Amino acid sequence: MRTHFPIFCTSPRKVKREELIRLFYFSMPPDEIADLADVKVSEVQAWKEGKKPVPLVVVRLLQAVLSKNTIQCDSPWSGARAQGSRLVLDDSVGYSLGIEFDELARLNEYRRLYHLGTMQADLIDRLITERDFYRQNCHQMSRYGMLLNSIFPPRPDKDVA
């Protein structure tokens, strides 16, 4: 795996190095970049090898072309892109996250199941609390019941005729 990317831009403050690597090494083949930017393939190779700086105009052009598939808005969905039948959020939330188109129809059921799980957990907690209370109460009653029976012996039952 390649770890050294000598590429650099004419405006390094405006374009991050990671963005240049993504655009020039992982987006399109050099001949397509050359056709798009109306330059020779050797020029693109010189940019990739770090012999010449990449013009900012070319970087912005590639960003515009490659962002057709991304959502541009002022929300958490900004930067999300369609990938097949999935909507994918990459690195905007710190990790890769995606949802299938078919899952959108099941969102109501997911929410219902989440609430059902929460309600069942609350029920289990309540039942455990009640069980512990009754266990302690039974233990106390049996202990004090034996004490009372030793002080006041039970009377024999009389037959009622």
Rank of each mutant, 00 (worst) to 15 (best):
M1W: 09
R2W: 02
R2V: 10
T3R: 09
T3W: 14
H4A: 04
C9Q: 04
S11N: 11
R13A: 13
K14S: 04
K14L: 11
K14M: 05
K14V: 03
K16H: 12
R17Y: 14
E18N: 12
E19P: 01
E19V: 08
I21E: 03
I21F: 03
R22N: 05
R22W: 12
L23P: 04
M28R: 08
I33G: 00
V39E: 05
V39P: 02
V41P: 01
S42K: 14
S42D: 14
V44I: 07
W47K: 04
W47F: 13
K48D: 00
K48R: 08
E49C: 09
G50Y: 13
G50M: 13
K51T: 01
K52H: 11
P53T: 03
P53S: 04
V54G: 01
V59M: 14
R60G: 00
L61R: 00
L61V: 00
L61S: 01
L61N: 00
S67F: 06
I71R: 01
D74V: 09
D74Y: 09
P76Y: 07
W77T: 02
W77K: 01
G79A: 12
A80S: 07
A82D: 00
G84K: 09
G84F: 08
G84E: 06
G84L: 07
G84Q: 05
G84Y: 05
S85T: 02
L87R: 01
V88S: 00
V88A: 00
D90A: 13
D90R: 11
G94C: 10
L97Q: 04
L97K: 05
G98I: 01
E100K: 09
D102K: 12
E103Q: 11
E103F: 03
L107M: 10
N108H: 14
N108C: 11
E109C: 08
Y110L: 14
R112V: 05
R112Q: 05
L113S: 01
H115P: 00
H115T: 11
H115M: 09
L116S: 02
G117Q: 05
Q120R: 07
A121K: 15
A121L: 15
D122V: 03
L123H: 03
I124H: 06
R126Q: 05
T129E: 12
E130N: 14
E130D: 14
E130W: 15
E130L: 15
R131K: 11
D132P: 06
Q136T: 06
Q140G: 01
Q140M: 06
Q140W: 06
M141D: 06
Y144L: 10
G145L: 15
G145D: 12
M146L: 06
L148W: 13
N149L: 15
P154H: 09
P154G: 13
R155P: 14
R155W: 10
P156G: 04
P156I: 06
P156M: 06
P156W: 11
D159V: 07
A161M: 13
